[in-house]
Design a protein around this nucleic acid. Structure first.
Lengths: 208, 208
DNA sequence: AGTAGAGTCGAGCAATTACTCGGGTTCTGC
DNA sequence: GCAGAACCCGAGTAATTGCTCGACTCTACT
């Protein structure tokens, strides 16, 4: 969240040489670690620069302010998430695929996505309120997955859903909510049982 | 999140007279509004005192630090939530009650709970990481509701669930996750349809 | 070799902010 | 009516932190 008002004076450089591209990457890496460890407020830019082994001045050559670091990390994570999910969806959302298998594949993809770096994930998508642009990107990904799901539901004989769009939306949101909670709070040795249960929840819903 | 290290020097006064009890109430009210409007980091104690129409000195007579304000608000909200949910649960979780009615009542109770002040709710339970004591309180409430639910499931003839405890836990988490998203992102005119769909999700899961 | 500009550096500035403290005001019990 | 306690006040302090800017080094190109 932008606690301070944005200054946004001089537009920043694009890194042109290999050297500086490396610097930017190192800074982002460090930012991810620091934010994950300390949270957004206590993750100071000086600390990030120090962790990156780079001067604070160098950091501000490429990022106009602290928020920009966060937004860059958000967009990277969203892109990664989109890749993982659309891969899973395209692979499994074909008319012939059995319901149970579809549900399980998606649940597992979602768990993978969330379990990467939980602390960072929390900071990026909970601690701060998302800027509008990022919020739109996130909504777009969700909508894309939901649309694929709806098309699948419409073409599947076993599925009895009066409104496939709504059913798809409910499923996507359910998976997201449950896996989120599971990853944050769950015991690792219960994960398998929970996955099976989530699959039952989804298939039960769609075939009733 | 405690960005600064806790000082926690002098223990604070208890309000004894009516006058000061009123002051404390006004401060908490103002804190709720300010945190909701600006978030935790930008919600400064001076601003809170100003909004409350009280000196910053008075605020620190009763709250040892900024975090204490937040914790007080959290605990108040948890208590309110527990009251709403246990009321709903006791009213409806009797062996004879039809499944659909139970599900609908709980979903609506949860929606009521979340729709009170969404911005404040976000700050209290997402923006900051909860201190252990609060986390325990929250877990206790969830466990209590889950236990009531499990008992109900066990005694209901329609319900086909191999493991009632796990089913209860899945349901509670599902309702929580879905209503949360619904309240945050949903269009008001879709709420009714969504509630019906959530009920179908739950009943389908339990009777398959 | 010379030079323009990309890249790096880090001391320090400006602003913010949680919290204190000494002193004044109001209440309460005797 | 008075002492002491409870309450209230707000200017000031100490510390933090985002970010700048002028000096320096490296790279690429002629």
């Amino acid at each position: 969240m932008p606690a301070r008002r944005q200054k946004q004076l001089r537009p920043r450089k694009q890194p042109r040489q290999e050297r500086s591209r490396e610097t930017v990457a190192v800074i982002l890496e460090a930012a991810a670690r620091i934010f994950a460890e300390h949270g957004y407020a206590a993750g100071t830019t000086n600390r990030i620069a120090a962790r990156a082994g780079v001067s604070i001045g160098s950091l501000y050559e490429y990022f106009p302010n602290k928020d920009a670091l966060l937004v860059a990390l958000m967009e990277a994570h969203i892109a990664e998430g989109q890749a993982i999910l659309t891969d899973a969806a395209r692979e499994v959302l074909v008319p012939a695929a059995p319901l149970r298998q579809v549900a399980e594949r998606l649940v597992r993809a979602m768990i993978d996505l969330h379990s990467g770096d939980r602390a960072l994930h929390r900071v990026l998508f909970e601690e701060v309120q998302l800027p509008p642009r990022v919020r739109r990107q996130l909504a777009a990904v969700e909508q894309q997955i939901t649309a694929l799901m709806a098309a699948y539901l419409r073409g599947h004989p076993e599925v009895r859903a009066p409104n496939p769009e709504m059913a798809a939306s409910v499923i996507v949101q359910t998976i997201e909510g449950l896996t989120h909670k599971l990853v944050i709070h769950g015991e690792p040795d219960e994960t398998e049982a929970q996955v099976k249960e989530f699959v039952r929840l989804i298939t039960g819903y769609l075939t009733t």
